[in-house]
Design a binder for these strands. Structure first.
Lengths: 223, 223
DNA sequence: CCATAATATGACCAGGCGGTCACATTATGA
DNA sequence: TCATAATGTGACCGCCTGGTCATATTATGG
């Protein structure tokens, strides 16, 4: 499940780590800007100042390069989520949601191009192994919040008249939209998240979580 | 604000309405499938069985054809929303939300390719006049729900501790995600909306609206 | 030092693109 | 009927794409 999507050629592995990273970064920027199909290998090699032949010594073809970039992306996401989950094992359902939201913001801040690549994959057809790629990033909902919601329901911290899978849908939709609105304009429903200061952003997150809490908690737990 | 984005050539206007429509439909299908930049005029004319020269007698260039398709799309959306609003003037805030959701589903059912074009515009850069196009479809949130939420707040049917703009964000995020999940897989957070029967879909919508009501209504209005 | 292996290079290929234009076909109306 | 205008056509243009490959350059180690 978390094996690599593709193996670069040995020649690529022999490169200095800084060079490897600069290549992945340049490719990610191009895929983020153009999507898979329209991304141009000529642009990438021009940006890097290397020849096209060299790129083909590192990767079999465009698809292999793209999949390697995506591998890099999923690795980074996992690190961020793992880091955010650490030390918060005993927090309640909504506190965890807040942590994930903060981790998402932090990830977009430090790797904006990777999140763009992911968005492009979602909305582009003819992306190689698209289904598989999307499934790997579904950690915000099913694999992650699903069991969490089930447990929360058992513990009675969620309204009994709302099925857990609907709680997950609502949470997933709001968190994802929040992150999309942060990553690119027109998706924030007028909240103007994109250029917001960190403080205001944290306020916005806290009040959003508070709304979720009042809406989804049983009424006898106090509002 | 609701003027046309572009004017087709006179030659196009002289065509029989059925032919005009078939051209717009074929172009919409191609833009929906490929996005703006990757859409191929050669594909479109091949599909239609006309020559490329003819297409250029109807529209100045690729951009003009695309903008005309988008004009057609926004016109259709407005008709659907207007039709859904008619006869529901005295419904409350959440009933209106439900109506809009149903209208959105109906629109996607009858014009799936137009909704895809819209999604492509959202996530593609270098789409001609992109900002302007997106602004025109923002009716689900700011222009439509904004005033509605303000009025609902004045009338006391919304919790006083949630700013109206946040209500709009939540509503916009959930409705839009619901429609996106219906229009294409991987966006439904496990709800499996895409292939759902009309009855189950209506149930899903009703319970979603019920959750919104309990979460956003004042607690003294009964849950 | 030098043979050999590893790596770097960019001209080149076939194919698709948006767009053009000289020409063929059809419609119009006096 | 026939001159003129309107419309239809597809070969062609320059440009860009992903991918190839003969050749040049560099690294290795005996």
């Amino acid at each position: 499940m978390d094996t690599q999507l593709v193996q670069p050629k040995q020649t690529f592995m022999n490169l200095a780590p800084e060079k490897r990273e600069s290549i992945v970064r340049a490719a990610a920027a191009e895929f983020a800007a153009q999507g898979y199909q329209r991304a141009s290998l000529n642009n990438i090699v021009k940006q890097l100042g290397i020849s096209k032949g060299s790129l083909y010594q590192y990767f079999d073809n465009k698809e292999a390069l793209f999949l390697h970039v995506f591998d890099h992306f999923t690795l980074q996401v996992k690190q961020y989520v793992k880091a955010s989950a650490a030390g918060n094992g005993r927090d309640d359902f909504f506190a965890v949601a807040r942590q994930v939201l903060l981790a998402g913001i932090a990830f977009i801040d430090s790797h904006p191009e990777y999140f763009q690549v992911y968005l492009k994959v979602l909305f582009e057809r003819d992306v190689p192994r698209r289904e598989e790629l999307v499934a790997r990033v579904r950690l915000f909902s099913l694999e992650y919040f699903g069991p969490l919601a089930d447990r929360a329901m058992e513990q009675g911290v969620l309204r009994r008249d709302i099925p857990p899978h609907k709680v997950v849908f609502i949470l997933d939709a709001l968190l994802d939209r929040f992150l999309q609105g942060y990553a690119q304009p027109h998706f924030d429903g007028g909240l103007a998240l994109a250029g917001m200061s960190a403080d205001r952003l944290h306020d916005e997150i806290d009040s959003m979580v508070a709304v979720l809490r009042t809406g989804l908690q049983p009424s006898d737990m106090g509002e």
